[in-house]
Every structure is written in C-alpha cells, then in structure tokens.
Amino acid sequence: MEFAEYVARQRPALMRFATVLTCRTWLAEDLVSDVLGRAFEHWERISGMAEPHAYVRRMVVNEYLSWRRRLTRISSRADVEPRVISDGADERAERDAMIRRLAGLPRKQRAAVVLRYYAGLSDREIAAQLGCREPTVRSQIHRALNALRIDLTAGVADFQETS
C-alpha cells in the first residue's frame, strides 16, 4: 500500500484513537501528524509488515507515552476541553465527567484502559504494546477502573471484558 493511500484510509481512525487516548483533539492532531511523519520515513519497512496499521497505532501509543516532558510542561493549560452542559442533560453530564476522569488518569493507566475497552485488545496484546507484563496490565486497568468509578458488575452483557 502506498503511504498516501494509507493516510487517506486510516488517518480518521488514527485521529479517533489518538483523541480517545489524549482526550484532547488538538493534541491528537499533533500526535498523529508526528507519528505519520515518522511512519513515512520508514514506510518501506512498515508497509511490508503483516499489520501496518497495528504497528502505526503502536507508534501512536509509544509517542503518547514518551511525551511526558511536553505534557508536564503544558499541563497547566492542557485541561480537558470544556463542553457546555444543557439543563437536565444528565447523561451528557455523566459522560463528560467520565471524560474528565479519563483525562486525569496516569498515562499508562489511560493507555491500558483505551487499548482494552476502545481497541479491544487482550492483556497479552496490551502488555506487548506497553512493554510490560500481563499482571501489570491487569493492575493498571484495575486501578484505572477504580479511578474512573466504574463498577463492572453494573455493566450490561455486551460490555463484558474480552479477556
């Protein structure tokens, strides 16, 4: 696949993934642009892989996790984008509160939660992406769910864990 074709097909999906990961659209744009620039430089190698998109998505996670210094520097301004809540919009209020809690998670916990519940990866796959052991993944997710105030027993059947 040519790089331009890949970008045309997958950039929207990468933007969604990066936005879920960062909780900030402007940061997601930077993240995706940066990663695609690097992917272009190595496209000959990446395009020969079995799953180029999975690899590029892993690059997004790695880049996100490596942005500690930059994110720390801007943390005072990098609050979650404010949204106007309509009167009586309880569901939206709950959803936006969830986004705020998600944005407040430590990066590895957030990455683990996003990879599990957004990307649908198994513990083993998440461990490979984050460069840690499976028990660590389970621990990160457990802590994250506590911080997000999510009660798994309150969920419906179609949202059960996948692994």
Binding site: R11, P12, M15, R16, A18, T19, V20, C23, T25, W26, A28, E29, E81, P82, R83, E91, E94, R95, D96, M98, I99, L102, V113, V114, Y117, Y118, L148, R149, I150, D151, L152, A154, G155, V156, F159
Partner: peptide
C-alpha cells in the same frame, strides 16, 4: 458509580470531537 456504557459513551464523544476537528468544525 458508573458502568462501562458510560465509558463507551465517553469514547464515542471523543471520537465525535476527533471527527469534527478533522473537518475543522470543532469549537473545542
């Protein structure tokens, strides 16, 4: 306490913001 549906609602909202930002229409 919330459930996983709320988390998925949050993901969906962030996706919507991503799509809106991509076409340059997101106030946020």
């Amino acid at each position: 306490m919330s459930d996983l549906r709320t988390l998925h609602d949050a993901f969906a909202e962030l996706e919507r913001r991503a799509d809106a930002a991509t076409v340059g229409t997101a106030p946020a």
